[in-house]
């Protein structure tokens, strides 16, 4: 149980973990009498972690969703799918490493996978632009989705982005148009589309690969119109009020399911996907497989009509009848 990054609210568990490490090092030196205590402490740590994660606040969930050890798109792709061949470029300007995609097999069946990709170390983070796509990324995603449609392959997208990149080049090359076109094309795609929010679902950058027949969220991921920090800066005129904004925005999976925005929540291992990635991969794979099976029972027309109705019915308003 040695983790590189402990979150502030995990402190009590971190302390027990340190103690366990200490006892283990004694043990390595030949002492054997600590085994019982280690087992006891490990049980305690696990229980404590479970308790903490059972009542995370929205801003704590945000931290888990952004956890630097959390599995990223390519981790899920490599562990859920086989025979992944990455495809590159928008055929127009460049290849955007903030979105990765290609063809792969899910239990033998060829599919297309696309997702925002964050970097693990500093160099990689910069290369991936922290998972914030440029227009080229959305256009690469669009190209791959159209490829999937042409060959009748289902599309799996993995959402993990703070949002679109606020930069000069991104604006000059039309990120608005790129996002908008994806929304339009995805709404009519003639193949099943399954989106999973695996970490941060940040605004338009997330939705640009999120217009799907079924939208799944990992338990500790978030999906929001704006980051809590951004929202606080605008509405509270104070970026430090992010806690309040996170709560008001209702960015957690359970809240979003109540609002009808997402269809399914996939359980994460205790303490988050990064603690037991294998379990997270297994859980998500099961969900993806069963969801695809469900969608394949629909013919093309019903699939597209159901997708249209799904997004068409989102929102709340009142309509008093006037006689």
């Amino acid at each position: 149980m040695v983790y590189r990054h402990w979150l502030d609210f995990e402190k009590p568990v971190e302390e027990i973990a340190k103690k366990i490490e200490e006892l283990k090092s004694f043990q390595a030196e030949g002492a054997t009498r600590h085994a019982d205590e280690i087992a006891k402490l490990e049980k305690k740590a696990k229980g404590l972690l479970k308790d903490i994660y059972a009542k995370l606040t929205p801003s704590q969930v945000t931290l888990v969703a952004r956890h630097p050890d959390r599995p990223y798109t390519l981790d899920y792709v490599q562990n859920i799918f086989d025979d992944f061949i990455e495809l590159h470029g928008d055929r127009c300007f460049r290849d955007d490493p903030a979105i990765a995609g290609g063809v792969a097999r899910l239990d033998g069946e060829p599919v297309v996978v696309i997702g925002q990709q964050k970097g693990r170390n500093t160099k990689d983070k910069v290369l991936r632009n922290f998972g914030m796509p440029h227009p080229e990324g959305y256009r690469k995603a669009l190209r791959l989705m159209e490829l999937a449609e042409r060959f009748g392959k289902p599309v799996f997208t993995f959402i993990d982005t703070p949002g679109a990149y606020p930069g000069i080049g991104a604006e000059e090359r039309g990120q608005s148009e790129a996002i908008a076109t994806n929304l339009l094309v995805m709404s009519r795609l003639k193949v099943p589309v399954i989106a999973t929010v695996i970490g941060e679902g940040g605004s338009g950058g997330a939705l640009a690969i999120g217009v799907a027949d079924k939208v799944i969220m990992l338990e500790f991921s978030t999906y929001s119109v704006i980051s809590p920090e951004g929202c606080a800066a605008i509405l509270w005129k104070d970026g430090s009020k992010a806690d309040l904004a996170a709560k008001a925005l209702k960015i957690e999976a359970a809240e979003l399911q109540k609002l009808g925005v997402i269809d399914k929540i996939v359980k994460e291992p205790i303490g988050g996907a990064h603690r037991e990635p294998e379990t997270a991969f297994r859980n998500l794979k099961a969900a993806l497989t069963s969801t695809l099976k469900e969608l394949k029972s629909l013919d093309k027309e019903s699939l597209i009509e159901a997708r249209y109705k799904k997004f068409r019915s989102m929102g709340v308003f009142s309509e008093p009848k006037i006689y």
């Binding site: 996002i179 908008a180 939705l207 999120g210 119109v225 979003l256 997004f311 989102m314």
Partner: peptide
């Protein structure tokens, strides 16, 4: 922002 994710979904 006051309609949060529901506003985002209006784009779709």
């Amino acid at each position: 922002m006051q309609e949060s994710i529901l506003s985002l979904m209006q784009m779709a």
